[in-house]
Amino acid sequence: MTIKEIQENIVDEFSMFDDWMQRYEYMIELGKSLPLIDEQYKTDDNLIKGCQSKVWVHAGLDNDKVVFTADSDAIITKGIIAILIRAFSGQAPKDIIEADTGFIDEIGLKEHLSPTRANGLVSMIKQIKMYAIAYQTQLN
């Protein structure tokens, strides 16, 4: 599936929820699920220090696709990370560079991606794009 198709699926899934409570409960469930990153990659090098929550991101190249794993110490942040990973991981670098994150607004989680929220997510997206650019350069 393309990034756009995955994002559309996520938007569809979220449209089933009636209110913020259900959306948040779903996010929390996602957040509570298994670790999204191998413990060995939870290093300071991979750490994004948000003011509020910490985020770890690791990237690798597999068959010309970028594979992301990530984690956070806050559950809601981790839930959003799970959604971002679902949308961006396993995609070609070029597609990641070109993709946007407008779908996060559509699923009613916009406030968590505000630069002033300082939860590490904005930096995480920037980091995802940087990795994609680096791998794209490598592939060229």
Partner: peptide
């Protein structure tokens, strides 16, 4: 067992 950010968000 709960991160302060999560409490604040809810």
């Amino acid at each position: 067992g709960i991160h302060p950010y999560d409490i604040g968000a809810i």
